[in-house]
Design a protein around this nucleic acid. Structure first.
Lengths: 234, 234
DNA sequence: CTTCCCAAGATTGTCGACAATTTATGGATA
DNA sequence: TATCCATAAATTGTCGACAATCTTGGGAAG
């Protein structure tokens, strides 16, 4: 029984493994967005029966990475501009809430640990400028810790098992290695300070702005991406 | 292929039917909260195979009505005071968002239709004072229409397929037939007026307050309920 | 008497095959 | 040539059986 990096679901069964593997492949684009999923084909590829694969597909559906239609089949979610906006509207509301709750419920040592982590990220970031992995992981880790700091299990599940993989999918496939790095760190710092001061209202506001900025940034990349694809299609 | 009342998923397959049936029984308490679910037993009861039942269980899990543990099994969710608070915190954030979006995106005829419905409810409500079904259905219908008015598909799915059944479960099992009826109507009226004036900020605020009041009301009932159960156990 | 361990029973996870439905193919008709 | 319908192929939905895992009960050791 091993463990996955982001969602803390322990991997015990075969379908757990297939779920985690497929999730990674979808998020990273190895299984391309919008493509149809053939059950027999993928079952053979992962070396499991269709029942096991279908179990995994069900879970992928509940975190919005695939869409099913009865008697028709399964499709990988399509990354559209509209969906990006929708998801970020929801994310803003939920993480805003998480941040407000964290200001009340986060333990002092959790806050300190997060500040420390932030400084550490800042140092390594300056060295490894432009290396996407650290930025991605660092940013996600920051958000993840605050979400957990809300101490609202339902909210935690909704975000980390529900929305975050889809958000990662956009970020990864848009190649988010932007110049927002340093700016994002400042915003992170302001947020954690507000949380430390138990100023929930401010923390919520700052988080919502931070996410809006992130959304704008992704949207720019997205349009760039779309323009490129248009050119290719001609 | 028939249709379900609230979630607009068409019922085509056998597992769809089992899903809808079980959902109703769980929400209404026929399958009691917190109880363990035996796959062989329920499969026999619904006259389907275990594979079909498991498909339904998966979907019940994604709308938070049951919880699964690998190699152990399935439990109906337990209605605790803590969870009630958590769910309502999330609901407040999401429906607040829905309301704000609805102020921008709801079509004029949708608004008119909802105002009309509200008046109609007010009339029939005065006659059938205390009859729970109409209140329940009326309230849910109001919220549902605003959610749909947000035009954010992700949000719509999150609320109507995700949270609402769990909220209904609390309301139904706490026997929500309170004296909040007329007050709720006034609040509904204020909300729809704000939406009509495209005042998203106000609409969001009013909705959040409305939901807070609803939460306080349920919580009272819940404590009453808990006190009764304690007395019984003695 | 309590604790630990092992075996029996029951439950869940996984598999391959069959049934029902959808999609693709090809020929007939206007 | 385009459209429609019927048939064939492929895909999804469902089933019953077997394998793996967890739970329960009883007996032995301390």
């Amino acid at each position: 029984m091993t463990q996955d990096a982001f969602s803390e679901t322990p991997i015990t069964t075969a379908s757990d493994q297939v779920f985690v593997d497929m999730r990674r492949e979808i998020v990273e684009g190895s299984i391309v967005q919008g493509s149809k999923i053939s059950e027999p084909e993928l079952a053979k590829r992962y070396g499991v029966s269709r029942a096991t694969l279908r179990e995994a597909l069900n879970r992928l559906e509940s975190c919005y990475l695939v869409e099913r239609k009865a008697n028709v089949g399964c499709r990988v979610v399509a990354l559209t501009a509209e969906r990006l906006i929708e998801v970020y509207q929801v994310r803003s509301a939920l993480e805003g809430l998480a941040c407000r709750l964290a200001a009340d419920n986060m333990a002092p040592d959790e806050v300190q640990s997060l500040k420390q982590l932030l400084n550490q990220h800042l140092k390594t970031q300056r060295v490894k400028e432009g290396e996407s992995y650290y930025q991605e992981a660092g940013d996600l880790d920051f958000h993840y810790r605050i979400i957990k700091g809300s101490k609202n299990d339902h909210l935690i599940h909704l975000l980390s098992n529900g929305l975050y993989q889809l958000i990662r999918m956009y970020r990864v496939q848009m190649g988010m290695v932007g110049p927002r790095v340093s700016k994002a760190f400042d915003e992170h710092l302001a947020i954690i300070n507000a949380i430390e001061n138990h100023d929930g209202e401010l923390a919520e506001l700052l988080m919502k702005r931070h996410i809006s900025a992130s959304q704008a940034n992704i949207q720019t990349k997205f349009n760039l991406h779309a323009a490129q694809n248009e050119r290719v299609e001609q």
